[in-house]
């Protein structure tokens, strides 16, 4: 759990207290420390900053409870796709992650669960072989150990630089989700901004309970493509979490500050009395 201590040190240092970040939406300036204290929500306009996987885990999990699993897997440019290796190298160095998902086990209010968190800072959390493999292994682990799974989705879709094998990850993960479900185990998805394409068309929409962060963009086809197909202007809230709730595709929109308690309650409700 050293990364959390590192992180806390980072945001508590005198420099973090004075270092400012600017809100993308309203240009409000805030110190890193205050932003962290406010769950990475702009105190001025309520904009939800996109979270890296580690920050998300840090907000969610009981202190020192996260234990990472299935790390050590890295992507390979097996099709020699132009520019892919450079993209991977750059993403690895800026995020210091191995790929676009972090998996492990953790607890919230004492409830143990398996968790995966997708990181949009890594090539828009596109799903290639590594993402598919790690999430599949996590579901297999959770099925074996009779654990619920909570998954935070974010993705630009399948990773086209891995060709059709990235598409196959959708079925591979879905098979593992199905086995987990058949074992009577709970799977909660939390949709975060943005969740699109092949991830929406597979494990993001396969949860027993589907939650979303407010205003998250969630859809299958990209807005631009839909606009071109439909040849008309789409409503502003098109493919927002609120739009999905209205059309019956998410169970609830949960503000970030309440997410931890909500998940703790849902896990408790599904605890099996043996």
């Amino acid at each position: 759990m050293s990364f959390i201590n590192d992180f806390l040190e980072k945001v508590s240092t005198p420099s973090a207290k004075v270092q400012h970040v600017t809100c993308k939406k309203c240009n409000h300036e805030e110190t890193k420390y205050n932003l962290y204290k406010n769950n990475y929500i702009c105190p001025n306009c309520g904009y939800y900053y996109r979270l890296g996987a580690r920050s998300r885990l840090e907000l969610l999990c009981d202190k020192n409870s996260f234990h990472e699993l299935h790390n050590g897997l890295t992507s390979k440019d097996f099709l020699e796709f132009p520019g892919y290796q450079e993209k991977l190298d750059k993403a690895m160095s800026t995020t210091r992650e191995e790929d676009a998902v972090v998996c492990g086990i953790a607890s919230v209010a004492g409830n143990e669960f398996a968790v995966f968190v997708m990181d949009s800072k890594f090539i828009m959390a596109s799903m290639g072989s590594v993402v598919g493999e790690k999430i599949t292994r996590l579901f297999e682990y959770a099925t074996e150990h009779k654990l619920p799974v909570i998954g935070f989705t974010a993705s630009g879709g399948a990773r086209m630089q891995e060709g059709v094998l990235s598409l196959m990850q959708m079925a591979k993960v879905s098979g593992a989700v199905k086995n987990h479900s058949n074992a009577g185990l709970l799977y909660i998805t939390v949709l975060t901004d943005p969740t699109t394409g092949g991830v929406t068309a597979s494990f993001a929409m396969q949860g027993d309970i589907i939650l979303s962060e407010p205003n998250a963009l969630v859809g299958f086809a990209g807005r631009r493509v839909v606009e071109q197909t439909t040849k008309s202007k789409l409503p502003d809230n098109f493919q927002s979490a609120e739009f999905l709730l209205e059309h019956g595709f998410v169970d609830a929109i949960v503000p970030r500050a309440e997410l931890r308690d909500t998940l703790a309650e849902l896990l408790t409700i599904h605890k099996r009395s043996v």
């Binding site: 879905s174 929406t200 068309a201 597979s202 494990f203 993001a204 929409m205 396969q206 969630v218 859809g219 299958f220 086809a221 990209g222 493509v225 839909v226 197909t229 439909t230 008309s232 789409l234 098109f238 493919q239 059309h247 019956g248 595709f249």
Partner: peptide
């Protein structure tokens, strides 16, 4: 990839 398909849950239909 149409607006009506998105409204009726294209992603969910494929996922299921």
């Amino acid at each position: 990839p149409g607006a009506d398909a998105e409204e009726r849950g294209q992603g969910q239909a494929i996922a299921e």
